[in-house]
Design a protein around this nucleic acid. Structure first.
Lengths: 346, 346
DNA sequence: CTGAAAGCGCTTACAG
DNA sequence: CTGAAAGCGCTTACAG
């Protein structure tokens, strides 16, 4: 493969000049510039990024970091939406995307993640950072790497969709439909800071409406379809008077709906169900899911844009997106106060 | 950040020796080795990968390539499953994962993809390669990069799940249930080689059972939920005698089910529906979907394992996984030959 | 406007 | 078993 030497020889100039042409330095004679460009073309020259990285300190690689906890990572379509947004911006800037998924546990963060941080391989990071256990962004910032946080860990640069407001919107919707007997399907408090905000938003709206959020029955799942299904069955069997279920993500909501239907309940006639995320699939579940759109693609885009601003020496302001309530057919007016009956069909 | 120099100084040896300790070269005195290890520990030394890459030609980066066509890429949970498999093996080998999603169009492959290939940044590639338009793997092989193909483009190293057999299993299942009036929801022939194999498998089984596959009504979607929904509505309104729908992926099947239910049909009592992929969500749709498990995680793992064998100088044999039929509740015995009636509810 | 030279941090024959 | 030295392919002050 051709290198700078080859190009220089062919163009009859020095490698320094070639380098300058490539990096668009001004003060290169147009004729020289043209000769070099021709030589590059003819030889099909492409820069060696490792060499460039070593001498300039710039790799043109951005790491996208998703902490890997509880196997949830690769099951969540939301991850893809964020990646889509990030990728579109990186691609426009001709940057490469390195996907880093460090294991997180009580013992801390996967050692190999630190290898990556100190490897000189990445110009910056975008870190999905809402796991209370540890902040993957902090580790990067401690090493002076420009880092944009998507989530709730403190950071100079961050984007998020307002989860408090999202939770509030969801609860307002249900209360507005007359629901008062509401079951909550969440995850353990120690699992996700964004979810905690959603719960706070729900609580606040409840208080405003004279409903005691703390008194509502709550079951903790694990973000999965199965977790939602089990939680829903548990809730309705223990509390047959519930007329609505609020779930902190779509996957649990979809699992809940399916299980309740199998138990003979009609959604939304017997029980209303809401989710959070607005996954693509949620528009096509039976029934289509009422949920919160947290604009995951935009989240990814914003994060990448902020990172490039930072790389250009600017100080981008933190950004908070407004969530949107998407009303579909999984919610309806609360039925009168009758307990419902569960019957396994199948 | 500490470099080899610093470590060498502290350990009182040369940088060559430090390098040898790090790379586990034999013939290093145990005492020396220990001194060096201590120094590394004390300084928190981590190798600079760019430098290592430049001098050794090894980057410890593997690119995973998903061609980006029709926006389908970031909507498909199957992508995550493949990534999960690949990541698990890369992680075990302490390799990094670079996600490359070159745009594919009639004009060919995104130019920036070639930059990546010739950048010296990747030790090898795993390419999802079933788009007839162009082979992303071929471009890599032409540059002597070790490349494992997941899919149907010709390549010395490849893994796939037998799509012919998968299609056959699906059709056998439907025929076994007595279905003869079967509608097909596919994608354009020019879109995906794996899908074409699925159709061939279906056709073969039909022939064996005296059914003319070519005569079955077929509508082309685009892999999406929406595409499946539209195709299903179209098929059933044109061909009310259909008792079953076979879809070439789960997302279209889920979209189809939802739309048919909205049109007043019961699944599977009125119409049986099958998909292909066995997405996590397909177990929790209403009703749970009968589908083919193509073992996407294993596919990703196998590909990565093959790549490491190749990097170690071996010649791994191509691998073909056997698909598994997963029977759930979206399929049932064919109803008697009555045309059904579509009625919008909502 | 152009080029010679140092240097980025490592690896790898080669000598000893 | 250990080290001096060349070299990987670039970029970047610095001179001219």
């Amino acid at each position: 493969m051709a290198n700078l030497q080859d190009v220089a020889k062919r163009a009859g100039v020095s490698i320094a000049t070639v380098s300058k042409v490539i990096s668009n330095t001004p003060y290169v004679a147009e004729a020289t510039r043209q000769k070099v460009l021709d030589a590059i073309q003819e030889l099909g020259y492409r820069p060696n990024l490792a060499a460039r990285a070593l001498s300039s300190g710039k790799t043109h690689i951005v790491a996208v970091v998703f902490p890997y906890v509880y196997d949830a990572l690769f099951k969540d379509p939301l991850v893809l939406a964020i990646l889509e947004g990030v990728e579109s911006v990186l691609n426009a800037h001709k940057y490469n995307l390195l996907l880093s998924t460090p294991r997180l546990s009580e013992d801390g963060i996967d050692e190999s993640y630190f290898n990556l941080l100190e490897s000189g391989y990445v110009d910056g990071l975008i870190a999905i950072d809402s796991v209370p256990l540890a902040s993957v962004a902090q580790a990067a910032q401690a090493r002076k790497l420009p880092t944009v946080v998507i989530g709730y860990h403190e950071a100079p640069m961050s984007v998020r969709c307002d989860d408090f407001q999202g939770g509030a919107l969801l609860m307002e919707h249900l209360l507005g439909l007359g629901h008062r007997q509401i079951g909550v399907i969440s995850v353990p408090k120690s699992m996700n800071l964004a979810v905690n905000q959603r719960l706070r938003g729900m609580a606040q709206v409840c208080t405003e409406h004279g409903v005691d959020f703390e008194a509502l029955p709550i079951v903790e799942g694990d973000f999965s379809n199965r977790g939602g299904a089990q939680a829903a069955e548990h809730l309705l069997s223990q509390h047959p008077q519930l007329s609505a279920l609020v779930c902190v993500n779509d996957r649990m909501a979809l699992g809940a709906i399916q299980r309740l239907q199998q138990l003979g309940l009609r959604i939304p006639e017997d029980v209303s169900v809401v989710g959070y995320d607005n996954l693509a699939q949620s528009e096509f579940s039976g029934p289509p899911l009422t949920t919160i759109n947290q604009h995951a693609v935009t989240l990814g885009q914003s994060a990448a844009e902020m990172l490039f601003l930072a790389l250009a020496g600017q100080q981008p302001a933190p950004r908070v997106l407004a969530p949107t309530l998407v009303v579909r057919q999984s919610t309806a007016q609360a039925r009168p106060h009758l307990a419902i009956e569960l019957t396994r069909k199948e």
